[in-house]
Design a binder for these strands. Structure first.
Length: 575
RNA sequence: GGCGGUGUAGCUCAGUCGGUUAGAGCGACGGCUUCAUAAGCCGUAUGUCGGGGGUUCGAAUCCCUUCACCGCUACCA
């Protein structure tokens, strides 16, 4: 029996997440998971914050906060955004708080070492005696050895684009620590490296080539595979998972590199979940089974780690670990013509957003504009258009036009269906479906935008049916037939509610209840495509719930104000 | 610099194992309708498919070249 283990990239706990993150890695995963559940599949959805690494230590020190406190704050801020979007994980943890994380990470390290996949190498790096740390290339500022630009970073000159060697730059020019401004010194340091070329040659390469990937994954990784280097997996610092003492051989102050331990978070969080469920051993069913379909939702910046490094580690464990099944990496999501940028204040402040707008409308718009094949962006005008034209006019208005009519003319109960009309009305409405596709099938193929389109088509079909059959006219000439038409329209709404559930769970529930249902729509079986004769589920005579508008409209002036505010925030930073 | 992605109607995109007059939604315009959140339905218009060259009976779709935007380039994550 197949089961789905779904992960979303662990957000780094040193800042808020924005719409780009949400639509890239979290929302599609949530929709995928909700769809699978309605299809009756067994699913586990794992996420939490990535809390180690040097960027966090620097951020915490700048704020004068202990690392755990700094990280906890961002963990909470990030979670609040997910809650607002209705993104629900089965387990939400963090790499520094998950009780299982250290042992799991060290276990990977030991096992990979035992299997001979780890190499020890000594190399020279720049060390800041003031900050007492080795400096990552990007934390070194100096003069470009090529063009003379004085604010070049250790890895690359932002002006001429040249790749720089930080040691050479430090030798030839006055390079300083970006954090404190002092001149670093060169020191030798020993680090463990993951032997990626050996793993590739011993079978990982064949495994990768034997699977089909999205174009942005296969091209990129296929190229990297051709020119692999062993990759360092340790760092000189204290914040992180220590290299196991029994392997450190006297080396002190070494921790696992954040990118080594972060993806192990998927494993350790699963272990935590299993223990909290009272079945501690259950995690292995997820992580060591050929029946598990492991799906990593990520943005394209994470491709090397999820498609090369982490699966190489899993492969190197040689214990039958579950390998990634699909990695639906999205491209990037921008904002109104520019990149989301906290430093430039080119952002949508999320708390403000949710105070003013409907989170489910935002969910739908993000799905409908998701960067599946190419970068895309949030435009306020388009959000308005989606909300007004698609959600309010097409979907919401279909519900109110049918249900309010029933309230006024049919005592607020689902009208009866004359068996003599059923077959013809089925033809009328199902005949319009044309090349209708099942949204769930698109979701399973990670075509979320397409799935969103089908949902809108569903509403168009309902609207056309109501228009064509015009119950407001029929009611005067043939009341029984009018009742049958309205019954059919209600059945269609019930269909639409279930289709909406993975995308807009609360709105789907609201519509479900308006139709007089008291169950959870998310608990319904996914209905697939309607089949003549068997697609009606609502009993005639059922009392409707309270009928209200599902989606309020957004005024032009509101949107203009948002765009103006966006520009104003950026201008304030620039000045 | 290397590698990858993208470039198709005003906007957002679909379509690329080559094949009839290049599609959808939104927006625009015209007509119909009045149950509904002034919503709905029908119809119309719009494109040298980034530029150039080539292969072919035939190319948005294959090859070469060129331009633009974006990303990655592995000791920031």
């Amino acid at each position: 029996m197949v089961r789905y283990l779904v992960t979303s990239a662990l957000p780094y706990a040193n800042g808020p997440i924005h719409f780009g993150h949400v639509t890239g890695a979290y929302l599609p995963a949530d929709v995928y998971v909700r769809t699978l559940r309605m299809l009756g599949e067994e699913v586990l959805f794992v996420c939490g914050t990535d809390e180690h690494g040097v960027a966090i230590t620097i951020g915490a020190e700048q704020e004068g906060k202990p690392y755990p406190q700094y990280v906890a704050r961002w963990r909470e801020v990030i979670k609040r955004t997910f809650d607002a979007f209705g993104i629900e994980f089965d387990i939400w943890s963090g790499t520094s708080i998950c009780p299982e994380h250290r042992a799991a990470s060290q276990g990977f390290f030991r096992r990979l070492d035992d299997r001979g996949w780890l190499l020890k190498k000594t190399s020279a790096q720049l060390y800041c005696t003031h900050d007492r740390m080795f400096l990552a290339d990007r934390y070194i500022l100096g003069t470009c050895t090529k063009c003379g630009y004085e604010q070049a970073r250790g890895d690359e000159c932002p002006r001429c684009g040249t790749w720089l060697d930080p040691l050479e730059m430090a030798r030839k020019t006055r390079a300083v620590c970006k954090v404190c401004g002092n001149v670093p010194e060169q020191r030798d340091t020993l680090h463990w490296h993951l032997d990626l070329p050996a793993l590739r040659d011993k079978g990982f390469g064949a495994w990768f080539q034997g699977r089909t990937w999205k174009p942005n994954v296969s091209g990129f990784i296929g190229n990297m595979l051709a020119d692999l280097q062993p990759r360092p997996i340790t760092r000189d610092m204290t914040w992180g998972v220590p290299v196991p003492e029994d392997r450190a051989a006297g080396e002190t102050g070494k921790v696992l590199y954040v990118w080594f331990d972060a993806p192990i978070g998927y494993v350790s969080f699963t272990q935590q979940w299993a223990r909290e469920q009272g079945r501690p051993g259950d995690w292995e069913r997820w992580w060591k089974s050929p029946d598990t379909r492991l799906v990593h939702f990520i943005g394209k910046d994470n491709i090397p780690f999820h498609c090369l490094v982490f699966p190489s580690m899993l492969y190197g464990m040689d214990e039958g670990w579950t390998m990634p099944w699909q990695v639906p990496a999205n491209e990037f999501y921008n904002l109104q013509g520019g990149k989301f940028s906290t430093s430039q204040n080119w952002t949508v402040p999320v708390d403000e957003f949710f105070a003013k707008y409907d989170a489910e409308a935002a969910r739908f718009h993000l799905i409908a504009s998701m960067p599946e094949a190419a970068d895309s962006e949030w435009r306020w005008e388009e959000f308005q258009s989606t909300n007004n034209a698609l959600l309010a006019d097409a979907i919401g208005n279909l519900a109110t036009r049918v249900l309010k009519f029933i309230e006024k003319n049919a005592e607020g109960r689902i009208p009866s269906l004359d068996p003599g009309h059923a077959e013809e009305l089925d033809r009328c409405i199902l005949g319009q479906c044309g090349e209708f596709g099942d949204p769930a099938l698109h979701v399973l193929e990670f075509r979320f935008r397409r799935a969103a389109e089908e949902l809108i088509r569903c509403a168009h079909v309902g609207n056309k049916f109501v228009n064509d059959l015009a119950p407001w006219t029929l009611r005067k000439t043939d009341p029984a037939r009018a009742a049958s038409v309205l019954n059919t329209a209600c059945q269609w709404l019930a269909w639409m509610a279930r289709w909406m559930a993975p995308f807009m769970p609360q709105k789907a529930q609201a519509l479900w209840e308006m139709l007089g249902q008291t169950t959870r729509v998310a608990g319904e079986r996914w209905p697939g495509l309607p089949v003549a004769g068997s697609w009606r589920v609502l009993p005639a005579g059922q009392r409707l719930g309270t009928v209200t508008g599902l989606f309020p409209k957004i005024e032009d002036a509101t949107i203009q104000a948002e765009v103006a505010a966006l520009e104003a925030r950026r201008a304030a930073v620039a000045s």
